[in-house]
């Protein structure tokens, strides 16, 4: 494997570069995936049948907290990658851990939110609106959950193997993924919650 020293470690082999490009394309597909969910959401937004509307069930406090937590975690993963670039293993691991903990608390809040909806009588089966709402949020939540495990595995690998072209490449790609989830959340926050509450 040829290692190109002039590049940052995560770009240093051809395989690394291909992995990153491949992941960007994957994110393109993910945009289509969430785009389809959003399009369906806008279509079914008023299909509330006999169930509640968004304005009736949305609660600003947990949603705001979720937003702040996720935005912060996006910042900390950025710091982790920066630490990786300057080869500071301790800081990288610390920021990665903070990111994952923030992700975990985001997930906890989201679960709380779902339980709240359940008590309000907004379940998957209630109406087309609640179904698409929960599916959209759930798909994002599932991505976060997947990311938590993925991040944890990368954490363990950096801890064990240090910064190799592979581990740094994986960390960088993971950071792209995490930023992407943040961007999706901003859309969810603006076009589902804010629009729904107004």
């Amino acid at each position: 494997m040829k290692i190109d020293q002039s590049q940052p470690l995560e770009y240093s082999t051809q395989q690394n570069q291909m992995n990153i490009l491949g992941f960007w394309i994957f994110l393109g597909a993910e945009i289509m995936l969430f785009g389809t969910l959003f399009a369906s959401y806008f279509t079914l937004e008023n299909g509330i049948g006999n169930g509640p509307s968004g304005a009736e069930i949305f609660e600003i406090t947990p949603v705001l907290m979720e937003t702040i937590i996720l935005l912060t975690s996006s910042f900390t993963i950025g710091l982790a990658i920066h630490a990786m670039r300057i080869q500071n293993k301790k800081a990288t691991l610390a920021f990665l851990a903070i990111t994952l903990l923030l992700g975990l608390s985001f997930l906890g809040l989201e679960i709380y939110e779902f339980i709240h909806y359940y008590h309000e009588g907004a379940t998957l089966q209630t109406s087309a609106f609640t179904a698409i709402l929960l599916t959209t949020l759930g798909t994002h939540g599932a991505h976060v959950t997947f990311g938590l495990f993925w991040g944890l595995f990368i954490f363990l690998q950096i801890k064990k193997r240090g910064f190799t072209p592979e581990t740094s490449n994986k960390s960088f790609i993971f950071s792209l993924y995490w930023h992407f989830l943040d961007v999706v959340w901003i859309f969810i926050f603006s076009f589902i919650y804010l629009k729904g509450m107004m």
């Binding site: 399009a39 806008f42 937004e45 008023n46 049948g49």
Partner: peptide, 17 residues
């Protein structure tokens, strides 16, 4: 089927619809 009970005003903005 696209009449939504309580809301007298339909703000459905999907183009196909």
């Amino acid at each position: 089927g696209h009449n939504h009970g309580d809301s007298a005003e339909d703000h459905d903005n999907h183009e196909e619809h």
